[in-house]
Computed example of a mutant assay.
Amino acid sequence: MHVSVLLLLSLTTVATARTRASWAWSSLGCFVDRDVPNRLLGSVIMTDAYEQTVERCLARCSAYNYALVENGRECFCGSTINNGTSAAMSECNFKCPGDSTEVCGGVWRGEIYEKGPSAWCVGAPGPIFTSEEKHFQVQEL
C-alpha cells in the first residue's frame, strides 16, 4: 500500500511566539582610555562632530563585539578590550552632539558597549517560522 500525504503549513510569527535571537548592546560602564598603542578598543575610529549618538556608533560597530563613545564625537570599534581601567560614570559626561539627552564619553573617558544575544521573546517554545510557507511531504511505502 502506498500512502502519500502533502501537508501545507503556513505560519506567521506573532508577538507571542518565540522569535529569532537578535543582537543587543549593553553598557559595561565608563573606562579610562589611553593613546595609541594602548587604546581600549584598538584603532578603528570614526568621528562625527555634529551628529554623533550612541545609536550611530553602535550601528557603525555592528561587525564588532565592542563599541566605545568618547570625547563627545568619537566612536571606536573592536573585537577585544585592551586592559581597561574603570572610571566613575560621572566622568563620562559629554553630551552627544546628535542627541543632547545622551552621553558620549568624556576626555580620555569612554563608555564601552558590548554586543551579545538578547533574550528570547516570551512565548511558546518550538520551531521558528517566518511569514513564508513551509511544505512537507510525507510518504509511507
Rank of each mutant, 00 (worst) to 15 (best):
89 M>A: 15
11 L>W: 02
26 S>C: 00
111 E>P: 00
97 P>S: 12
106 G>F: 15
82 N>Y: 09
91 E>V: 00
8 L>G: 15
49 A>P: 05
108 W>T: 04
83 N>G: 09
102 E>T: 05
93 N>I: 05
44 V>Y: 11
37 P>A: 07
6 L>N: 13
39 R>Y: 05
34 R>P: 00
15 A>Q: 13
38 N>D: 07
25 W>Q: 11
3 V>W: 04
31 F>Y: 12
21 A>V: 07
96 C>Y: 06
10 S>Q: 12
97 P>M: 11
27 S>I: 03
17 A>F: 08
5 V>W: 01
12 T>D: 06
32 V>L: 08
43 S>M: 05
90 S>G: 08
101 T>F: 01
48 D>K: 11
34 R>L: 06
51 E>G: 15
74 E>R: 15
90 S>D: 14
29 G>V: 02
26 S>K: 07
80 T>M: 08
17 A>T: 13
24 A>V: 15
47 T>M: 10
30 C>P: 00
78 G>I: 02
103 V>W: 03
88 A>Y: 00
101 T>M: 13
85 T>M: 03
71 N>I: 00
112 I>T: 03
53 T>G: 11
27 S>N: 04
68 L>C: 09
83 N>S: 14
25 W>T: 02
64 Y>A: 12
15 A>D: 15
18 R>G: 09
96 C>A: 04
31 F>P: 04
21 A>W: 08
92 C>E: 12
49 A>F: 12
57 C>V: 12
20 R>H: 07
105 G>R: 01
78 G>T: 01
107 V>T: 07
56 R>W: 03
12 T>P: 00
7 L>M: 11
89 M>L: 11
39 R>K: 07
28 L>Y: 00
103 V>T: 14
74 E>G: 11
13 T>V: 07
17 A>V: 03
50 Y>M: 06
51 E>D: 15
49 A>E: 10
83 N>R: 14
28 L>E: 05
44 V>I: 05
42 G>C: 06
11 L>C: 05
112 I>C: 07
39 R>S: 10
89 M>W: 00
108 W>L: 14
112 I>E: 04
27 S>Q: 02
28 L>M: 10
